[in-house]
Structures are given as C-alpha cells and as structure tokens.
Design a binder for these strands. Sequence first.
DNA 1: CAGACGTGGTA
DNA 2: TTACCAAGTCT
Length: 352
Amino acid sequence: MDASSQDVARALLGWYDVHARDLPWRARPGCAAPDPYRVWLSEVMLQQTTVAAVKSYFAEFVRRWPSVEALAAADEGEVMAAWAGLGYYARARNLLACAKEVAGRGGTFPADELELRALPGLGAYTAAAVAAIAFGQRAVVVDANVERVVSRLFAVAAPLPGARVAIRRHTDTITPSERAGDFAQAMMDLGATICTPRAPRCLLCPLSASCLARLHAEPEQFPVKAPKKARPQRAGKAFWIERDGAVWLVRRPGKGMLGGMRALPDDGWSARANGNGTPPLMGPWQPGGVVAHGFTHFGLDLHLAVYEGDDWSSLTASEGEWWPLDSIDDAGLPTLFAKAARLALAEAGEVG
DNA sequence: CAGACGTGGTA
DNA sequence: TTACCAAGTCT
C-alpha cells in the first residue's frame, strides 16, 4: 500500500468515526464485538435490498430466532412466510440451509473468508463482508456502493460489468489491514449518503481531494454501465376461490419464480410467456380487476378471475389449503399476490 | 457469462 | 409514468 492509499483509508475512517449510520445490526462503538449471526443475517437481507426495507424484517427475525441455532430449528414454511414481501426468496431458502450447516458445526460461523464463501447464499461480497465486519479479517469487500465510489475515485472508464476486475484491484489497493470491517462499512455509508448515484455531495466528501472523477469530469458519469435490455410485458391470471370465509391457496414449487412461497393458483404465466388461461377447476368464472406488477426482468398484468360455482370437490388437500380471510395478512403471500388478494377483497366489499 | 430472481423508493 | 436503483447469488 503506497502513501496515498493509506491516506484514503485514514480519511475515510476518520469520517466514519463521526458520521457512521446507527443501524440495528451494528455493534455500538466501544461495546461488545459484533454478533456474527446478526452480521450474517443483515448482510443476506441487504442483498439488493434497501436499509429501510430491511429494518423491520431484521427486528422480527432476531426477535423470533435470536440465534443461528434457533433459526436452524425453525419450520421452513414459517421462515418463508416471515420473508414474504422482502423479495428474492431464494435468499430465505439459502438462509435456512446455511443456518443448519452452521448449527451443525456447533453454532459457530467460520471466520475464514473462503469457508464462509462455501456456505449457501454467501457469494463473494457477503463472504468478504462477514469476514471483515464480524471477524475483523482483511477482506476486499465490493458491493454496488464500493463499485460506485471506487469507479469515481479512480475514474474507471471501462463499463460494468467488465470493469469489476479493475475495480476490485483498486479496492484491494486502498483496503487497510486494520479496521477492515469499519472500512467496508464506511465505504458503503459513503456511497449511500455522500457518493450517491445522482447528485453526489462532493463538498462533504472526505475523499474529494483524491477523486479523479471530480478532477477530470462529472462524478455522475461513473460508474459507466452497459446498456440494459428491454423488459418484456406479460399477462396472466390468478384465481380467487372463496368458500365459507376462506380462500384457496397453494404452495409454489421450491425453485423458480417466488419459489417455495404460498400463492394464489395461477395459469402458468412466466417471464417467457403469458398464462394459458387454464383454471384450477371447472365451472363459472367472473373476471375481476388487474394488478400491474413489475419484476426485475419482466412486467406483469395479473388478471384476477373469481370462481362463482359451488363445487370445490376437485380441490385436494395435497395441492393447497383453505386460508381464513380474516388472517390473510399472516399467509405470507409475496407482494404480487398480497396485492391481488387486497384487490379481490376490496371488490367483494364493494359488491356486498 | 448472461439471465433469472422481488420489491419499494426516487426523480 | 417510465426508468433507474439498492450491502448479490446461483446456474
């Protein structure tokens, strides 16, 4: 590490000592060492997810499952339901699988980055982050914040994702041996509050004197990104089947879209194709409203179809369950189907 | 390696 | 309203 790299780390840590965000999963300064369980849980929740969205989920998870052993013993359906609304549901499946692995080794997370990387749901970023934040290891932590800060600091002209190798090399250069966890969190706090995607607050930035983007061009021009592909628009149906104050819910297959989540029956829509219109039982159906929902890789117009018949005999318990409408909020429906349920209940309310 | 994989907030 | 963006991982 040359002198200027040390200057960057020193300036950033000095700024962090004053301006660190107070977040629920962070150890208070001067208090006990961070709890690896809380660090890991928060890092998984924060993957592609905002701090604001994570806070209430983190509080509820640590309340219900205060330790990795407690989480490892949890019912999978309850974990999936507790994750409902947070998105990227493979994270919840991997979370439980990881908890079981860690519980199997005595409830102790490995402190080594490579061993962490081998656990379910821990990729390059999360393994480095947990090694640094929970265990104080020097690890090169690169997330979207760090990519933005570093691409500006060094005016990296190559577009993402190809520039990742160069950005990682630059990050390695400025990462200190001491306080590696604070350094990583400081980079992320800087990216979240000062070195923002739009209108960065360079006048408040502790690194502005070293920033090549600020020197040569507009900082907003970094990071350079490859153009994005168009997002297809799809249409499909969700089926609302009500009986004696309960609605028929199914469990989606373990993998793929909304995998493992409780759901309304649907007609097979996907990112690739519209639904085929096939309902889960024969009989009279009435069209309901439409829910517009945006996924990362496609948009969906979900058309609600309401069953108006009185023969439910073809619905078997192995395929689904009757869920009481007065506790529909506890069903653990992902947001798309929670919206659809809200719409169905609102329409029923208007009629009745 | 490019695509699959959620959702809510912001401009 | 559309588009982009957020502490990525897996295949």
